[in-house]
Nucleic acid binder design. Structure first.
Length: 506
RNA sequence: GGCCCGUUCGUCUAACGGCUAGGACGCCAGGUUUUCAUCCUGGUAAUAGGGGUUCGAUUCCCCUACGGGCUACCA
């Protein structure tokens, strides 16, 4: 009896989606598609204090840009909604009550201040890591330590309370992690986590378990930061009498230099985006750069992300999304954290840039253009430029394609412009004028036979030809550039350039 | 501090006990090119340390070191 695979990506709308989060979403997506399953987006907004406007839309748009859209969930609908936890608030209480009735949870009336005092006290005695557990709960204010009357009175008076899980003192909790294998933790090292907050909202732990169960999630694929709380979740499933989904904890993405989790700061410091899309902080107005705005292709970004912690076991490194789906498996996900490499990301982008035709690139570029140019011409520019570019916007960096040069590269002039150059150029120009078919091939033939006739080397003429037409000392093939610009334009540029340079000399 | 997870070239990684530890990025050198880029060829560089188990360990076990995560009425 194999039920349909259902996985979920469950971010909190507390800010822009970090690329680590995108990778988690990606792996979930790949796993779902690989097994003809469902990929669900659930928004975990149980902490109202951390809500950031715009974050939810940002998450949805990011996934969309990456091409890893959920087929069910917040913004997509489905039979298991609502998909936002704040809208599911009414669902959780009954399960918490069930836990209380079965003796697996209890009321606790201690205030945050009181608990902080306990922690401070423990700390001052040299004991870090104070816990609300099977020992300490005996002398704290909760429904296990207080009398029935006291409890009733507090509840009747409306005194704020939380509900905590009641953990056994010394019991081994074990679970099989699809990536790490068996993990064993003793409840003696765990604490009685809050399941239900005094504001009437469940905590992550409770909401997570209830929703995963109700939404019939079969596999939980999430970041390694959740590994320590996995035993708690296992216990919760057990106490609720539910079958736990399979768990897989992904290794973290680390900063490129030094150690530690990749953070927004690292991107700012080292000059690369950590977010898929640009994000403007609604409070501070600060802008964080995004891969999309930097000119990365979503395919390249996704390809790079997929390989950060996973590999197909073959030398192939370039994969389309469908290819990734085909090749993906949880078994080939590594156990250790991966340092992010911005250089390799650029390389991925370059690979995708090359695969695109001039026409495709032209279409992508067109919306950002501030001047008029034909599709055909723009495609020609892209065709010439793409071999030497990493990013699509570099196609437009050489403005000589769109207007005659105003200045001429001094280094080239100094090195290559000789006394006899004007004469050579003048004659070359007239040869070009006689050309009927101004194609790259013909231009090159004309140019080369001219050189042979005059017994001149490439180096004596081509750089000057280039600098007059483009103003630059380097670039793509001059013959192809010439064909693209057209006979009239090339001849014009040669003539006016020659004039200007001679005037300068005089 | 406690608990958990991890550790192969600078980086991403391959090698599911058995060839000179392979590939990719980067870097360096040579070639191609009018030039830059591309491209081609070559080079650089790793099993954290120590014990076991074994005929044989990158691979299995233990210890140490180092790194990371968690340790909230945050997710």
């Amino acid at each position: 009896m194999s039920s349909k695979v259902r996985v979920r990506f469950a971010p909190s709308p507390t800010g822009p989606l970090h690329m680590g989060g995108v990778r988690t979403a990606l792996y979930n997506y790949l796993f779902a598609k690989k097994h003809q399953g469902d990929f669900i987006l659930r928004v975990e907004d149980t902490d109202q204090t951390r809500f950031v406007p715009g974050a939810e839309d940002y998450i949805i748009e990011s996934l969309k840009w990456c091409g890893i859209e959920p087929n069910e969930g917040q913004g997509y609908g489905g039979d298991f909604g609502p998909y936002k936890q704040s809208e599911r608030k009414h669902l959780y209480r009954q399960y918490v009550d069930q836990l209380i009735e079965s003796g697996h949870a209890y009321y606790a009336f201690d205030t945050a201040e009181e608990l902080n005092e306990q922690r401070e006290l423990a700390k001052s005695q040299g004991k870090a890591g104070w816990q609300y557990n099977s020992i300490t709960r005996q002398y704290l204010k909760n429904s296990l330590s207080l009398s029935a009357d006291e409890i009733k009175q507090k509840l009747d008076e409306g005194e704020p309370y939380v509900i905590r899980i009641k953990l056994p003192r010394n019991e081994e909790v074990r679970f099989y992690d699809e990536i790490r294998g068996w993990v064993v933790v003793n409840t003696a090292n765990m604490d009685d986590k809050v399941l239900y907050k005094s504001d009437g909202m469940p905590t992550y732990h409770m909401a997570n378990i209830v929703d995963d169960h109700l939404m019939e999630i079969t596999h939980v694929i999430r970041g390694e930061e959740w590994l320590p709380s996995a035993p708690l979740h296992i216990l919760l499933y057990q106490y609720l009498g539910w079958e736990a989904p399979k768990l897989a904890h992904l290794p973290l993405i680390l900063k490129p230099d030094g150690n530690g989790k990749l953070s927004k700061r690292d991107g700012d410091r080292l000059g690369f985006p950590v977010f898929p899309l640009e994000w403007k902080d609604p409070k501070t107005g600060d802008i964080s750069s995004g891969y999309r705005e930097k000119g990365y292709f979503p395919e390249a970004f996704v390809n790079m992300l997929a390989f950060l912690g996973w590999n197909p076991g073959t030398p192939q490194e370039i994969f389309s999304l469908d290819g990734l789906v085909e090749a993906f498996s949880l078994e080939r996900v590594g156990k250790s954290g991966s340092k992010f490499d911005p250089e390799k990301t650029k390389w991925y982008n370059q690979q995708y840039l090359r695969e695109k035709s001039g026409e495709e690139l032209a279409q992508l570029l067109k919306p950002s253009l501030s001047f008029d140019v034909s599709d055909e011409f723009l495609a020609g520019v892209c065709e010439l430029m793409k071999e030497r570019a990493l990013f699509i916007q570099e196609m437009l960096e050489d403005d000589y394609f769109f207007e005659a040069p105003q200045a001429y590269d001094e280094k080239t002039i100094k090195k290559k412009w000789k006394d006899q150059t004007p004469e050579i150029i003048t004659e070359l120009t007239s040869r070009y004028e006689q050309l009927e078919d101004f194609s790259a091939k013909k231009i090159e033939e004309t140019f080369k036979s001219f050189l042979a006739e005059k017994e001149l080397g490439m180096g004596a003429v081509l750089p000057n030809f280039r600098v007059l037409v483009t103003g630059k000392g380097m670039g793509p093939s001059m013959f192809q550039i010439s064909e693209l610009l057209g006979k009239e334009e090339v001849i014009n540029r040669l003539k006016t350039g020659l004039e200007r340079l001679e005037k300068q000399k005089a």
